[in-house]
Amino acid sequence: MSRTAFYAYFRSKHETFVVVAGQVRDDFLHAHELPGNLDPRAMGRASIAAFLTAHAQYSALLTVIEHEAGADSEIDAIWHEMQRRPARRMARYVRDLAAQDQADPVAEPEMLAESMFALFRRFGAELAVDTIDAADPTGRFARRVDELTAVYLRLIGAE
Protein backbone atom coordinates (compact mmCIF):
# COMPACT_ATOMS: atom_id res chain seq x y z
CA MET A 1 0.00 0.00 0.00
CA SER A 2 1.36 3.39 -0.88
CA ARG A 3 1.78 6.12 1.71
CA THR A 4 -0.97 8.13 0.02
CA ALA A 5 -3.41 5.20 0.14
CA PHE A 6 -2.49 4.50 3.76
CA TYR A 7 -3.29 8.05 4.83
CA ALA A 8 -6.57 7.94 2.88
CA TYR A 9 -7.73 5.38 5.46
CA PHE A 10 -5.84 6.49 8.55
CA ARG A 11 -4.82 9.94 9.75
CA SER A 12 -1.79 8.68 11.65
CA LYS A 13 0.22 5.64 12.74
CA HIS A 14 -1.40 6.00 16.16
CA GLU A 15 -4.89 5.71 14.69
CA THR A 16 -3.76 2.61 12.79
CA PHE A 17 -2.42 1.05 15.98
CA VAL A 18 -5.67 1.79 17.85
CA VAL A 19 -7.62 0.01 15.09
CA VAL A 20 -5.24 -2.98 15.12
CA ALA A 21 -5.36 -3.17 18.94
CA GLY A 22 -9.15 -3.05 18.80
CA GLN A 23 -9.24 -5.91 16.31
CA VAL A 24 -6.88 -7.98 18.49
CA ARG A 25 -9.12 -7.24 21.50
CA ASP A 26 -12.23 -8.31 19.58
CA ASP A 27 -10.61 -11.54 18.35
CA PHE A 28 -9.17 -12.23 21.79
CA LEU A 29 -12.51 -11.72 23.55
CA HIS A 30 -14.42 -13.67 20.90
CA ALA A 31 -12.16 -16.68 21.54
CA HIS A 32 -13.52 -16.80 25.10
CA GLU A 33 -17.19 -16.82 24.17
CA LEU A 34 -18.19 -20.40 24.85
CA PRO A 35 -21.61 -21.91 25.45
CA GLY A 36 -22.48 -21.80 29.14
CA ASN A 37 -24.13 -25.21 29.23
CA LEU A 38 -20.90 -27.22 29.42
CA ASP A 39 -19.95 -29.08 32.58
CA PRO A 40 -17.18 -27.41 34.64
CA ARG A 41 -14.41 -29.68 33.32
CA ALA A 42 -15.38 -29.20 29.65
CA MET A 43 -15.97 -25.49 30.12
CA GLY A 44 -12.65 -25.01 31.91
CA ARG A 45 -10.72 -27.00 29.32
CA ALA A 46 -12.36 -25.25 26.35
CA SER A 47 -11.85 -21.80 27.88
CA ILE A 48 -8.22 -22.46 28.78
CA ALA A 49 -7.49 -23.86 25.30
CA ALA A 50 -9.12 -20.80 23.72
CA PHE A 51 -7.13 -18.41 25.90
CA LEU A 52 -3.81 -20.13 25.23
CA THR A 53 -4.53 -20.30 21.50
CA ALA A 54 -5.39 -16.60 21.32
CA HIS A 55 -2.38 -15.69 23.43
CA ALA A 56 -0.01 -17.73 21.25
CA GLN A 57 -1.54 -16.27 18.08
CA TYR A 58 -1.25 -12.65 19.25
CA SER A 59 1.72 -12.91 21.60
CA ALA A 60 3.87 -10.24 19.94
CA LEU A 61 0.99 -7.79 19.53
CA LEU A 62 -0.16 -8.36 23.12
CA THR A 63 3.30 -7.38 24.33
CA VAL A 64 3.19 -4.15 22.31
CA ILE A 65 -0.38 -3.37 23.38
CA GLU A 66 0.50 -3.91 27.05
CA HIS A 67 3.57 -1.69 26.71
CA GLU A 68 1.66 1.08 24.92
CA ALA A 69 -1.17 0.93 27.47
CA GLY A 70 1.07 2.70 29.98
CA ALA A 71 1.39 5.76 27.76
CA ASP A 72 -1.88 5.91 25.83
CA SER A 73 -5.34 6.07 27.37
CA GLU A 74 -7.11 4.59 24.30
CA ILE A 75 -4.79 1.60 24.25
CA ASP A 76 -5.03 1.34 28.05
CA ALA A 77 -8.82 1.02 27.78
CA ILE A 78 -8.46 -1.73 25.15
CA TRP A 79 -5.84 -3.56 27.24
CA HIS A 80 -7.91 -3.44 30.41
CA GLU A 81 -11.00 -4.69 28.61
CA MET A 82 -8.99 -7.64 27.30
CA GLN A 83 -7.90 -8.44 30.84
CA ARG A 84 -11.05 -7.67 32.80
CA ARG A 85 -13.93 -8.98 30.71
CA PRO A 86 -12.77 -12.63 30.62
CA ALA A 87 -11.88 -12.47 34.34
CA ARG A 88 -15.33 -11.10 35.22
CA ARG A 89 -16.94 -13.80 33.08
CA MET A 90 -14.93 -16.51 34.86
CA ALA A 91 -15.75 -15.10 38.31
CA ARG A 92 -19.46 -15.02 37.43
CA TYR A 93 -19.28 -18.63 36.16
CA VAL A 94 -17.53 -19.82 39.35
CA ARG A 95 -20.08 -17.98 41.49
CA ASP A 96 -22.91 -19.68 39.54
CA LEU A 97 -21.28 -23.09 39.95
CA ALA A 98 -20.95 -22.53 43.69
CA ALA A 99 -24.61 -21.49 43.93
CA GLN A 100 -25.54 -24.74 42.18
CA ASP A 101 -23.30 -26.78 44.55
CA GLN A 102 -21.09 -27.80 41.62
CA ALA A 103 -18.04 -25.99 43.01
CA ASP A 104 -16.51 -25.06 46.34
CA PRO A 105 -13.96 -22.34 45.53
CA VAL A 106 -10.91 -22.00 47.76
CA ALA A 107 -11.14 -18.18 47.55
CA GLU A 108 -13.42 -15.43 46.27
CA PRO A 109 -14.28 -15.99 42.58
CA GLU A 110 -12.75 -12.63 41.55
CA MET A 111 -9.44 -13.54 43.19
CA LEU A 112 -9.47 -16.97 41.57
CA ALA A 113 -10.21 -15.47 38.16
CA GLU A 114 -7.39 -12.93 38.46
CA SER A 115 -4.98 -15.66 39.62
CA MET A 116 -5.93 -18.03 36.83
CA PHE A 117 -5.60 -15.35 34.18
CA ALA A 118 -2.12 -14.54 35.48
CA LEU A 119 -1.25 -18.23 35.04
CA PHE A 120 -2.82 -18.34 31.59
CA ARG A 121 -0.85 -15.27 30.51
CA ARG A 122 2.38 -16.70 31.90
CA PHE A 123 2.03 -20.05 30.16
CA GLY A 124 0.36 -18.64 27.05
CA ALA A 125 3.39 -16.45 26.48
CA GLU A 126 5.68 -19.48 26.26
CA LEU A 127 3.59 -21.29 23.65
CA ALA A 128 4.50 -20.60 20.07
CA VAL A 129 1.84 -20.53 17.37
CA ASP A 130 3.24 -23.76 15.90
CA THR A 131 2.49 -25.68 19.13
CA ILE A 132 -1.24 -25.02 18.85
CA ASP A 133 -1.88 -26.46 15.41
CA ALA A 134 -4.20 -29.42 15.07
CA ALA A 135 -1.35 -31.91 14.85
CA ASP A 136 0.39 -30.68 18.05
CA PRO A 137 3.29 -33.03 17.24
CA THR A 138 4.93 -32.69 20.66
CA GLY A 139 1.70 -32.75 22.64
CA ARG A 140 2.99 -29.72 24.55
CA PHE A 141 -0.11 -27.61 24.02
CA ALA A 142 -2.49 -30.41 25.06
CA ARG A 143 -0.40 -31.16 28.17
CA ARG A 144 -0.37 -27.50 29.18
CA VAL A 145 -4.16 -27.28 28.73
CA ASP A 146 -4.63 -30.44 30.83
CA GLU A 147 -2.34 -29.15 33.59
CA LEU A 148 -3.97 -25.73 33.76
CA THR A 149 -7.43 -27.33 33.69
CA ALA A 150 -6.48 -29.50 36.67
CA VAL A 151 -5.23 -26.43 38.60
CA TYR A 152 -8.39 -24.50 37.70
CA LEU A 153 -10.70 -27.33 38.79
CA ARG A 154 -8.91 -27.69 42.12
CA LEU A 155 -9.06 -23.97 42.81
CA ILE A 156 -12.75 -23.75 42.08
CA GLY A 157 -13.40 -26.99 43.98
CA ALA A 158 -14.97 -28.85 41.06
CA GLU A 159 -12.61 -31.81 40.70
Results as ranks from 00 to 15, higher is better:
Lys13Arg: 14
Phe17Thr: 06
Ala125Met: 13
Arg140Thr: 12
Tyr58Trp: 06
Ser73Ala: 15
Thr138Ser: 14
Glu126Ile: 13
Arg143Trp: 06
Ala107Gly: 08
Gly124Phe: 02
Arg95Phe: 07
Val24Cys: 02
Asp96Phe: 09
Phe6Asp: 11
Gly70Lys: 15
Gln83Pro: 05
Val24Phe: 01
Gly139Ile: 07
Ala158Phe: 01
Thr4Tyr: 11
Ala87Gly: 04
Ser2Lys: 10
Thr131Leu: 07
Arg88Asp: 13
Ala99Gly: 15
Ile48Pro: 02
Arg25Ile: 00
Arg88Ala: 06
Ala125Gly: 15
Leu97Phe: 06
Leu127Tyr: 05
Ser59Tyr: 05
Ser59Lys: 08
Arg25His: 00
Phe51Leu: 01
Met111Gly: 11
Glu108Phe: 01
Arg154Ala: 01
Val106Trp: 09
Glu81Ile: 02
Glu108Tyr: 03
Arg84Pro: 01
Glu15Ser: 09
Ile75Trp: 02
Asp101Arg: 10
Ala98Met: 06
Ala87His: 07
Val129Arg: 10
Tyr7Ile: 12
His55Lys: 07
Leu153Arg: 06
Gly139Pro: 15
Arg92Lys: 13
Gly44Arg: 04
Ala69Trp: 00
Asp136Ile: 11
Tyr9Asp: 13
Glu159Cys: 00
Arg41Ala: 08
Thr138Ala: 15
Asp133Gly: 12
Ser73Gln: 14
His67Gly: 03
Gln83Cys: 10
Arg92Leu: 11
Ile48Asn: 02
Gln100Lys: 05
Glu74Asp: 15
Asp146Gly: 08
Arg85Gly: 00
Leu119His: 09
Glu15Thr: 15
Ala107Val: 08
Met90Cys: 10
Asp72Thr: 07
Leu61Lys: 01
Gly44Lys: 01
Gly157Gln: 03
His67Asp: 06
Gly44Gln: 08
Pro109Met: 03
Ser12Arg: 08
Gln23Cys: 07
Phe120Glu: 02
Val145Gly: 07
Gln23Pro: 02
Pro105Ile: 06
Tyr7Trp: 06
Glu68Pro: 08
Val106Asn: 07
Met82Lys: 00
Ala158Cys: 11
Leu62His: 05
Ala113Glu: 09
Phe28Cys: 01
His55Trp: 04
Val24Ser: 01
Asp27Thr: 00
Ala99Val: 05
Arg144Gln: 12
Pro105Asp: 07
Val64Met: 12
Ala103Asp: 05
Val18Gln: 10
Ala150Pro: 12
Ala158Gly: 08
Gln100Trp: 14
